[in-house]
Design a protein around this nucleic acid. Structure first.
Lengths: 123, 123
DNA sequence: CTGTATCCCACGCGATACTG
DNA sequence: CAGTATCGCGTGGGATACAG
């Protein structure tokens, strides 16, 4: 398996210099991928653990976004063959390499959008 | 005018820690904003100059994205009162502060998506 | 040159219900 | 618990035409 999976929903990869910006964005775009990736920076999480961290996401969307992230090789999905199913999600090598980007996004947000969040400081 | 313009199309700003990631993403998201911002890192550009740099964007979309970026205070729009209209776009202070983020996106893209672009090396 | 106005379709995404 | 299936709406965004 090589680095680039397959240009599916992603923008054309054969464009001008600004392309890599769009290409990278297309990977972390999609309403929930950013947060999902961010939370996975903490470590492996189970499906419902992620849901709890992102209250507004629906099962459908979580599954969907998780699948796309997986297809893009950003996260790894580990399924335990148990009666009460257990599935863990974690960053892949490639996903981990996005840490700097995710943090850049977070830091900028923290610095330039001064959110007035009422009750939270850590994860 | 303060830093945060007004939560319009942007995701709810009163959420969990991962929020700032999403919030920042919502600003540079939108199919063309990333590239536009990237190209404006070079300096001031006129409407059609941007179009030339992004061949696939339509007038409608360019205008649209430019407007949103302007509303979000990321870029400045300078209109010259001339018969053949002349409009220049440039990064605002706030937009400039995004440089690190944009470059992070680009660098990751360059490093992890090895594009096989035929003819380009620098901006 | 720089936009704006319509028309319109594709699809992102939510709500809800069902399954191994 | 984790996920899939279906339905349906809102809107992102392309094509095209008109305007200051």
């Amino acid at each position: 398996m090589d680095t680039v999976s397959s240009p599916g929903r992603h923008s054309r990869l054969d464009c001008s210099p600004g392309c890599s910006v769009e290409a990278t964005l297309s990977l972390i775009d999609g309403k929930w991928k950013g947060v999902i990736l961010f939370h996975l920076l903490d470590g492996t999480l189970r499906f419902n653990e992620i849901r709890k961290r992102i209250p507004d996401v629906t099962q459908r969307m979580l599954t969907n976004q998780l699948r796309e992230l997986e297809v893009d090789g950003l996260i790894a999905r580990r399924v335990y063959a148990q009666v009460p199913p257990k599935v863990e999600y974690s960053l892949s090598e490639r996903g981990r390499s996005l840490e700097a980007v995710i943090l850049a996004l977070k830091h900028w947000g923290d610095a330039h959008l001064h959110l007035f969040h009422p009750r939270d400081s850590a994860a």
